Computed example of a mutant assay.
Amino acid sequence: MPIKIPDDLPARSTLEAEGVMVLRETDAVRQDIRPLRIALLNLMPNKVRTETQFARLLGASPLQVELTLVKITNHVARNTDSGHIAAFYRDWEDVRSERFDGLVVTGAPVETLAFEAVTYWDELRRIFDWSQTNVHGSFTICWGAQAAAHHFHGLPKHLLAEKAFGVFSHRNLAPASPFLRGFSDDVAIPVSRWTEIRRADIAANSGLEVLMESDEGGLGLLHDPAHRALHMFNHIEYESGSLADEYFRDVAAGLPAGKPANYFPDDDPARPPRNHWRSHAHLLFGNWINQIYQTTPFDPAAIGRN
């Protein structure tokens, strides 16, 4: 089944060129099925690129997915055209009365700030609480995952001595988990962050389960069953050139930029990187979508009642 996104969303042409099945809104209304409603709370500066990354992964599911783009209420995006935001995004305050099968919360370039210093922290906390009554399952990414772990479990965020930057091997610690069905024993995942959540801070009675972990990158994936959530601390959604773009951006800005580890062939930035994580990214999101489909109520009004 395809993913249903607005007909004019820029991601559509990219996904169609890649062979992703994209359903037009006019065709979707003729299908007598209930699509899974997934909300994407996009906190990244480049909205269009991030939309495409997640729509690509959500659209690979055999189930019909209806994607709703959500933003922090009254927050002005400085790196995306205001017309795009107005055309395709809805404020969270405008969707808070609705129910969704899934919620994806992206990363954000605010990780070195204290959580409480982030201008939209209070609203994000309300969104996390709302997810417990109006969303069946959540998937948080990078800073979004750190924020959720802090909100729900009080886990502190630690500043790293240097940026964790590169593609690092993660051990599959829970091969029997439905979220890691079909995963290899070791998984390469892009990492790009200045802070981390540490295993040592997780209380024994927290109910949190570490699903993936890396010697170089630390915690990779947590399952939070009490809050029906997955917390991915790294960027498995990244495209092949995402880390290269970050590296060259920092070089151009005169910032101290170390090359991403295990990324450029022979560590040569002049050579195009090879993607070693794409299949696992599709598998992880496919497993998450399937788990939601297997457990979400057929009647959306019943979401959040159990």
Results as ranks from 00 to 15, higher is better:
1 M>I: 00
4 K>G: 10
4 K>E: 11
6 P>Q: 06
6 P>H: 11
12 R>S: 02
16 E>A: 11
17 A>M: 06
20 V>C: 08
22 V>N: 08
22 V>K: 02
26 T>M: 11
26 T>Q: 15
27 D>L: 15
29 V>A: 07
31 Q>W: 09
39 A>C: 13
39 A>S: 10
40 L>M: 01
43 L>F: 14
44 M>L: 14
46 N>M: 12
49 R>G: 07
52 T>K: 02
52 T>N: 13
52 T>S: 08
55 A>V: 14
56 R>Y: 09
57 L>G: 08
57 L>E: 10
58 L>I: 00
65 V>S: 06
66 E>S: 08
73 T>G: 07
82 S>T: 15
86 A>I: 12
86 A>E: 15
87 A>Q: 14
93 E>I: 04
94 D>P: 04
95 V>Y: 03
95 V>I: 11
96 R>V: 08
98 E>G: 03
98 E>D: 14
99 R>S: 13
100 F>R: 10
107 G>E: 09
109 P>G: 00
113 L>A: 15
120 Y>C: 14
126 R>W: 07
126 R>S: 03
128 F>E: 01
133 T>S: 10
134 N>Q: 12
137 G>Y: 11
138 S>C: 09
140 T>V: 03
143 W>K: 03
144 G>S: 06
146 Q>H: 10
148 A>R: 14
150 H>R: 11
158 H>G: 04
160 L>E: 11
162 E>M: 00
164 A>L: 05
168 F>H: 04
173 L>K: 01
175 P>N: 07
178 P>Y: 04
185 D>I: 04
186 D>N: 13
186 D>W: 10
188 A>T: 04
190 P>W: 00
190 P>Y: 01
197 I>P: 01
197 I>T: 03
198 R>W: 05
199 R>G: 04
201 D>F: 02
206 S>V: 01
209 E>V: 05
217 G>S: 05
218 G>L: 02
220 G>W: 12
231 H>I: 07
231 H>W: 09
234 N>P: 06
235 H>Q: 10
237 E>F: 06
241 G>Y: 07
248 F>Y: 01
250 D>W: 02
252 A>I: 08
257 A>W: 06
258 G>V: 05
259 K>A: 15
260 P>L: 05
260 P>Y: 02
263 Y>D: 00
263 Y>W: 09
265 P>L: 11
267 D>I: 06
272 P>N: 10
281 A>Y: 05
282 H>W: 04
284 L>N: 02
284 L>Q: 03
287 N>D: 09
300 P>R: 05
302 A>V: 02
302 A>T: 06
302 A>G: 03
303 I>Y: 06
303 I>F: 02
